[in-house]
Amino acid sequence: MQLTLEHLSFYLNQCENKRLSWHTLKAYRIDLKQFYSFMMNKDMNKREISYYIHYLNHHFKPKTVKRKLASLHAFFEDMVFYEIIQENPMDKIRYKIQEEKTLPRIIQYHQLQDLFHRLDQDQHFFIKRDKAVIELLISTGIRVSELCAIKNEDIYLEEKYLIIYGKNAKERVIFLGEEVYLALKEYEQAFHDRISEQEYFFINNQYHRLTDQSVRHIINRYTDDFHITPHMFRHTFATMLLEQDVDISYIQKILGHSSITTTSIYAYASIQRQKEIMMNKNPRQLIK
């Protein structure tokens, strides 16, 4: 059987119906179009797909290969479900992706202090939105794509919780602490009319849906002398919870990780931090 554009269109339409994030849909679209180009006029069999995996391993980093193969596996599973094919050809292929271990980059405490000090000093028109965005990132550890996808119907301010739809449209409840609740409340009150006109809770400077890139611009406004990405808030949130002895299984649920293996990278990072402190800031070094 050969892959057709109709197969891809059907699958991507199904993904949109599952309320997957814009970021996830974009990744699926890129990955599957690349697979389609490689498989042009070829049969979807074990040998050809193995060649494709070989191609990926020689042209992309392990993390990217892993994502592309996950996209492919999900596509085939859907085709099996709708009886377009009899079985998932990926199930018959053995492969192992040795992903390089990189420690998550976190925001230093003094940088967070500086960031919030600048937020308190700024008086521009959208400052309440900016505060709400940054408070939500550092107080909940949600992904930037999840933040941008929050709809008005997903947020329950008076009850102090919101509904997040993570990867693969997995739903989870996020409870709000006092600081982030107040920031969201002030933003909602300041832009109530504009927000009510939109489907999504966060708006950009043109009063449309906030995007990943818009969030990066917001962060850059207050961190021009040190580099911070939206995902670093997630890393920092998880690491700080671990350093306060929060059980890793709770952190896994809050972050929306399907496997605790993913969350365990923060435990490793915390151990490395302890080692750094003992090596470089040991009180014994002060005794001369």
Rank of each mutant, 00 (worst) to 15 (best):
I106K: 13
F233L: 06
D122M: 06
D78G: 04
S9L: 14
D78H: 13
T239W: 07
Q198Y: 04
I138S: 08
E16P: 00
Q113D: 07
K167F: 05
M232S: 01
F201A: 05
D78M: 10
E158R: 11
F116N: 03
R129K: 11
N41W: 00
K33C: 10
Q14P: 01
S37F: 10
Y207I: 04
W22L: 13
S196R: 15
Y165Q: 07
S145T: 00
H231E: 01
Y266G: 06
L241W: 06
T24G: 03
S9V: 09
N220L: 02
Q198K: 14
H58M: 12
E159L: 05
R172N: 08
L255S: 01
R273T: 09
D78E: 12
C148F: 04
F75Y: 09
L112R: 01
D130T: 10
S259D: 13
H110S: 14
L286M: 14
Q123L: 11
S37V: 07
F201Y: 15
I265W: 05
D225S: 12
P89K: 12
D31Y: 09
L8H: 00
K101T: 07
K33D: 08
Q2G: 04
S264K: 11
Q274C: 05
H257N: 02
H7D: 14
P62G: 12
R172W: 09
F175W: 14
D31N: 13
F201I: 01
Y268L: 10
E159P: 02
I260Q: 07
M79V: 03
E153W: 03
S21E: 01
T211I: 06
S249C: 01
Y11D: 01
Q285M: 12
I30L: 13
E135N: 12
L8E: 01
I248G: 02
E83C: 09
M39F: 08
T24D: 00
E146R: 06
K253H: 03
H235G: 04
M278Y: 15
L72R: 12
F116G: 02
H235E: 02
Y11E: 01
Q86D: 11
Y95G: 10
I254T: 00
S270L: 04
D224R: 11
Y187L: 13
E178G: 07
L112T: 02
F116W: 03
K101E: 13
D120A: 13
I287R: 14
E276F: 13
Q272F: 10
L103T: 08
I164F: 06
I85M: 09
F191S: 05
E178I: 11
P230E: 07
F126K: 13
E16R: 15
K275D: 05
H73N: 15
A267K: 06
A190N: 12
K253A: 04
A183W: 07
Q123E: 14
I49D: 02
N17Q: 15
R172S: 08
M1D: 09
H58Y: 09
H257L: 04
S249K: 09
V144M: 04
I142Q: 01
Q86M: 07
H227R: 07
N282Q: 07
P62S: 13
I260G: 08
L184D: 04
E188H: 15
E6T: 02
